[in-house]
Amino acid sequence: MSKIVFQRTKGLTEKEFSYCPGCTHGIIHRLVAEVLEELNILDKAIGISPVGCAVMNYEFFNCDMQQAAHGRAPAVATGIKRVRPDNIVFTYQGDGDLASIGTAEIVHAAHRSENITVIFINNAVYGMTGGQMAPTTLVGQKTTTSPFGRDARLCGEPIRMSELLATIPGATYVERVSVHDPANVRKAKRAVKKAFEIQMKGLGFAFVEFISTCPVNWGKTPQEALNWAKEHMINYYPLGVFREPKEDAQ
């Protein structure tokens, strides 16, 4: 007799992902969806889709969704959570969305310690618009708008959002994770779960940054992209917990 050992999470619809092969958005979507299902909060979850590659993720997450203007997801989430405090509200945002055009919104959502969960995807590039330089692009990294490599004298050093947000008293939980190998995927899921549990307990702003890949715009195969994330991204964007609720601190 056969037995089910793995199946699609109820947190995702049956719609096929629109992401490029090898992109880690798919893994991260699944982690978020599994956590929503496992914590039994799918039926009261309201997600915010960003502008960027994940713009259509309202078709993938199997819960109520609102699509937000570029960078404004934390403001939209604030509006929802303030009027529906019993719902579970999360945003899912890329680095152009969150770390560039939406810096004011994310900083102030953290500052107010909005009781929301933020999933931040850092792949060091603007994906959807075709591989332009992001605030997170590494120094020397070539993109379509930094064709000679990012020059720190002209464009500054890449912005580290987790470290930046961790300076804010209202940021209850800030962790950076990666999904470049199975061990890290498991670790990342624990972080996502914690970020939602913090919201369920009403403890305030919870933020999980994912080191993600963009094989197409990085000009790499999926495996090369994972290796590059591990060797270069994590070198500049160290993984770990930057802030957590007092009771959880070691």
């Binding site: 937000a68 203007a69 403001a75 939209v76 604030t78 929802i80 303030r82 719902n87 900083v107």
Partner: peptide, 18 residues
């Protein structure tokens, strides 16, 4: 009180959508 008019109207969007 939002951090900007831009944030305020997007909060309105969220609350209205809710």
């Amino acid at each position: 009180q939002a951090e900007s008019e831009v944030a305020a109207i997007n909060m309105v969007y969220g609350a209205s959508g809710a």
